[in-house]
Amino acid sequence: MLRRWRTGIVIFAAITAFSAFTPAMSAGVALDREIKGTFLYKFAPFVTWPDSAFAAPNAPLVICILGDPGLADSLQGAIAGQHDGNRPLVIRAVSRASADCQVLYVPGQDASSAAAAMAAAKGRPVLTVTDLPVDAAGHGVICFVIDQGHVRFDIDNAAAAENGLTLSSKLLGLARVVITKGALP
């Protein structure tokens, strides 16, 4: 019996020491924010932008985050040196919708600021992403939802087509709900 506890302590001490050298996950309350941030560049391989979206074949893929410079900073740290194909990934914190973005994320539940950004991006080759539900005014092409304690997303494929984007069937398959044309309110 005593030996069992002793073994437990040794394992415990070993793992505790090991952990010091491991980049690990903080158990902060903002985990959903971090997951959403990570999704932003994980979407890229499943999206085809028209050539007109980029100045050059090896121009960077620019991910813009509206109104959350903290998230943009952390994301920049996380993706340093990464590419989408031959395009380097660039994160930019912006205060209003910009034409230079290929991905535009508008965090939060403020429908009016999201609607303004969506209007500015409409018809341009921008993958818009919001936290608003897919049936709400001001929602983006991709809409994050918290479902059963997980970050999931819904897709408005009509809005994607309107912006000249093609989303892969795999991405559509991963979405919780996909809205195609005609289903919009």
Partner: peptide, 12 residues
Amino acid sequence: ADEVGPSMTQLG
């Protein structure tokens, strides 16, 4: 790194 940095690296 930023406070959330390690976490996002791992999520990545």
